[in-house]
Design a protein around this nucleic acid. Structure first.
Lengths: 123, 123
DNA sequence: TGTCTATGTTGACGTCTATCGATACAGGTG
DNA sequence: CACCTGTATCGATAGACGTCAACATAGACA
């Protein structure tokens, strides 16, 4: 908490997109695991997964908070989870007038999908 | 081995494999999110991710504990994390003589990959 | 039998995290 | 300006989690 000087949100996304080979290709290094685990961890909470899925499946890949906040937890908790997803590089946000819109980072989604690819060599 | 039905490991794997559409297809229900989040959470720790990657990339998709336990934590911690991966349905284990071998569940890996597929409708 | 190695389990400890109510901030409307 | 709505932050708290040392268990071998 004390060492949160700056939040490198965009860097996180880029790092994730480029960091890692498929899980089945070779053993991850400590660094690769650290980077990739950050993403998996972000999706490792049911509420966050529902929020992320709601945004990802929304028209245009973006959604207002008011459209997705019906997940059974309080408003501060929703805000907290959206922040976590942002810090993990999975979502970006933009305020337009009264409402705040969250959007998925497609490159990150693709990178995660590649991680779970089954390589011919390992199969 | 005694047929203790304590841990429904295979059920967890099956549930994961069949539970969920791509994240971008429609908002997850609470139940779907609960199931899928269990997997992501299991991979959301750097040590577990390294262990899983080590097993998945090992010859034949299986590895002895002794081959993968060099991840910078104590032996009990390695055992603890392997257990977690087992409970999440990502790995299965089998004792052969002195050593215990862990193997990846390929169907689960494929199911997770499908989760992260970008559907044409959402793109 | 006893001993050695490989792996799992237990119990404890410190840290992280999900959650909430209260509050602050931002922007629209009157 | 004041007021209302949508969203973020703060502070507190209960529970989950990662880690280790100590101990337990399973199999191989003499």
């Amino acid at each position: 908490m004390s060492n949160t000087k700056v939040l490198p949100l965009l860097d996180a996304g880029d790092a994730v997109a480029a960091c890692c080979p498929p899980l089945t290709e070779r053993p991850f290094t400590a660094e690769e695991a650290e980077t990739a685990a950050r993403m998996f961890k972000a999706l490792g909470d049911p509420v966050r997964l529902r929020l992320f899925s709601a945004v990802a499946s929304h028209e245009g890949g973006e959604a207002c908070v008011c459209d997705i906040s019906d997940v059974g937890v309080s408003q501060p908790t929703v805000s907290h989870h959206l922040k976590k997803l942002k810090e993990a590089g999975l979502l970006s946000s933009e305020r337009r007038g009264t409402w705040v819109y969250y959007r998925v980072e497609p490159s990150v989604l693709a990178a995660m999908g590649k991680l779970l690819t089954i390589t011919p060599a390992a199969a």
